[in-house]
Design a protein around this nucleic acid. Sequence first.
DNA 1: CTGAAAGCGCTAACAC
DNA 2: GTGTTAGCGCTTTCAG
Lengths: 337, 337
Amino acid sequence: MATMQQVAERAGVSIATVSFVVNGTKHVTDETRARVEAAMRDLGYARHHAASALARGRTNILALLYPALESDLSGSGVQFFTGAAERARERGYTLVLWPARNDAGEIAELTATGLVDGVVLMEVQLDDPRVDLLRASTTPFALIGRTADPSGTAWVDIDFEATVDDAVDRLVALGHRAIAYVEGEPDGRSSPHGGAARAHAAYLAAAARHGFAPRLLACAGDAGAGRSLASRLVDEGSDATALVVVNEHAAPGILAELAQRGRTIPADLSVLSIGTSPGAADPALARMPSPGAELGRLGVDAVIDRIENPDRPLPQTLIPCGPPEGDSLGPAPRPAG
Amino acid sequence: MATMQQVAERAGVSIATVSFVVNGTKHVTDETRARVEAAMRDLGYARHHAASALARGRTNILALLYPALESDLSGSGVQFFTGAAERARERGYTLVLWPARNDAGEIAELTATGLVDGVVLMEVQLDDPRVDLLRASTTPFALIGRTADPSGTAWVDIDFEATVDDAVDRLVALGHRAIAYVEGEPDGRSSPHGGAARAHAAYLAAAARHGFAPRLLACAGDAGAGRSLASRLVDEGSDATALVVVNEHAAPGILAELAQRGRTIPADLSVLSIGTSPGAADPALARMPSPGAELGRLGVDAVIDRIENPDRPLPQTLIPCGPPEGDSLGPAPRPAG
DNA sequence: CTGAAAGCGCTAACAC
DNA sequence: GTGTTAGCGCTTTCAG
């Protein structure tokens, strides 16, 4: 409500001096500083954001682009947001979650009007129109995930290769040889996720390396689909002794249905979910938690680096999921005989 | 990148005229308008947000305040955000999710610096410091949920009374008389949620009305706690034939553990979850979906009304959860005889 | 119907 | 160490 001008008058100094103490831009005598601060307190001064942004050409706001209507920000998405917001605050920015459809208008408006200083893009797809729009703009940005050709962009991504390798290695060490892989199904709405493709490839490679035949399964990304898949496995008398699941929202359904159909977990069958959100998940489900908060932090660091040091090399980082936690993991059952 | 000034020059008009066509503020000849629009297109003009906000004293941005680090925006929270963002866009605003801790600084800064035109507050608690801060500010706001004394604020809330009544009535109609109630446990971090208290009271009232003895249960808000609770019920040989669950994240755990412990659902026991997120939940769990998107829309309408018509009566609205969907609901089992 | 010009509140040279 | 002042880009009266 109070303007800088009013503060200046009350403190008996010039408006410039007030600006200096507000921003710490220049040194000011302790004496004057005290007077200014008192005046600010008395008047309840707060700097006007738009005015400051206009004068500086900076807003100190970062947008985390969120595909409205398409994704749901549950589990790891929340961790991500939280980690990102925290890091941004530490570095003097405010990060807000910005709903933006995939279409041109919204993103163009965001970048062209100078509303934000930078953008973090999550749920990046292999062929992602939003990335093209950002590339075309002058707004610094960083990706969580990668497009098919990630060169020339700043990104951080989950290391699905390493994580799937790790998962398969652990299962093999537990004696498993019939390890099936459950992924998501293309939903027709969005182009494929890079992570899914890389995880898939990593599974095939791991199977080859360990000398077992790959068993690929897929279902939609919800508990109901997970149940159907589990049902099918039981009905078909699948001989898999372990499931590696890269389908966050289907995993609980798979587990529930297997239990309901009389399978004892993990005695009969191990289930290991990858990239699942950390935190309050069902302890009955073993999962390798995705590094949500860490991705958020690094993503924010990446944009801010782009903003403040445009000529530094582009940050490009991979982070694996954490080690398995939860109860659905155990030694392979002895072959029936 | 291009300024209004440049557009004006290229179109051979004054900067004021450009402003008129950009904002539709005043009538402009078709002829001039065409010239201006051509110039804008050629130059790729986009209005500078901060400058416009400074001149108008309006940002056209709305903040959905999100308790960072404390809540997780899953399920119905997402529906809510999406509905709110959509409605805001329809009415010419952009709604962003703003992480803000409960402490003074963050909220004060948000409201005092003129960053946003209005605020929607979600996850409102009975005694909520954030509401006091908003009240003390001059920024229009609306609550999702209510404080202990909701008078003098604009709010929309879930009608837990009506929903719990509805739930109990349906179970009674299915022959149930031993209907237990599962709520959350105070988590020590946050003051109680108004909805929880009202739902609790409504259950007690419904029990009295139908003449059955209330059976109150509680557990923490995660699948693991739900499992423990279910385990305990089985171990103790509970004779409840139905569970009304007002604990979104525990419900799946309860259901899973009951199934695992050999209970057939709903033949042995009905489970009805209230206020659970609509959408891709486990179809095995019957739930009365919370009206997330609708709440979001109404919440946004409420703030915008406050902004644009400060003297209209305060919007205060209750919305019940939808009718049950899902499979865990059935007639009461015949008493063992 | 269009233009001139006075701000909006703050920042950052540049002078003293 | 502090003050003067010219903008930042746009909006909006007020004349014409």
